[in-house]
Amino acid sequence: MAKVVNCSKSNELKSEFKLGVIGCPIKHSVSPVIHRQFSQQFNHQIDYQKYLVEPENLTSFVSTFFTNSETQNLVKGLNVTLPHKQLVIDSLERLTEEASLCQSVNTIFVDQNGKLTGDTTDGRGLLYDLEQLDFAVSGKNILVVGAGGASQSILVALLKAGASIQLLNRTQDKAEILVERFSHLGKIATFSASAFGGSLKLDGVISSISEFNGPLMSSITSCIDSQTYFYDLNYGERAESFRQFALANQCERFADGLGMLIGQAAFSYQIWTGSLPDVNSVKL
């Protein structure tokens, strides 16, 4: 049974949109706060909740959410967070091209043909935030740390934007699988400090792992300098160890993933409502 975590005050006006985010755990999510602020920009009336959904209940929850007759007149949509971004694919009728390439979904909507569709806006959110930070990825050597679901959701966007990717993961085999899967999209290889004749210099390092791994990161120290940009998909305290590693290696250019979180949310909101919010006005 899914548990509803009600994080918003009741709204006397009738909602136009029935929205939410599903995950396990989910209590930490700030998505309702973000989307409520988006809705105020357009005077939309939304009901956005966070739902604690166990993996074994995922398919039934998604089906019930979108077929509930009590909300049949509302536009419906779901955001998807860990651990469901890959698991939810089996509950959908169609994937967008990007979601199919990534094999990752963070946004569910009903398309114009009535099909339950999965998309991913994570990569778009990351690129938007990096642009805001004045870090264009085209032509840059970028190390992506991790080869899990979070990594898959951004690799397609980075490669399509023209980045050259080095992929570093605790288990080499998993990294090699992703390299093979995405090699047709651009330059991607497993990390090697001796690449380019031993002169590999990284323009950016993006961490997609949930917890900092010191021994893994120690292998890149010869490839970074004070101009290397460090970016953690985590935000707040969960990004602190990665930031400290950057500072210890004289790298002061660092950002956490809060901007990406808001950016991907904005693109999800656009899918559901047709309106792209101003992310710069969001206050958390």
Rank of each mutant, 00 (worst) to 15 (best):
A2Q: 04
V5G: 00
L13R: 12
S15T: 07
V21S: 12
K27M: 02
I46S: 03
I46A: 04
Y48H: 15
Y48A: 01
Y51K: 05
L52K: 01
V53H: 12
V53L: 06
P55C: 11
L58T: 05
S63D: 13
F65G: 02
N68W: 03
E70D: 13
T71N: 14
T71M: 04
Q72N: 03
K76Q: 13
V80F: 01
T81S: 13
T81W: 08
D90E: 15
L92V: 02
L95G: 06
T96G: 11
E98S: 09
S100F: 02
C102S: 15
C102G: 05
V105R: 05
T107E: 02
D111E: 06
T121S: 11
D129R: 07
E131F: 00
A136M: 04
A136G: 02
S138Y: 00
G139T: 01
V145H: 06
V145I: 10
S151D: 06
S151Q: 01
S153N: 04
A157G: 06
L158C: 11
L159Q: 06
A163C: 13
I165H: 07
Q166F: 12
Q172C: 01
K174T: 14
V179M: 00
I188K: 08
S194V: 03
A195C: 04
A195F: 10
V205A: 09
S226F: 01
E237D: 10
S241Y: 04
F242N: 06
F245M: 09
A246E: 04
L247E: 10
A248R: 09
Q250M: 00
F254P: 06
G257F: 14
G259H: 08
G259Y: 05
G263D: 10
L276E: 07
P277D: 09
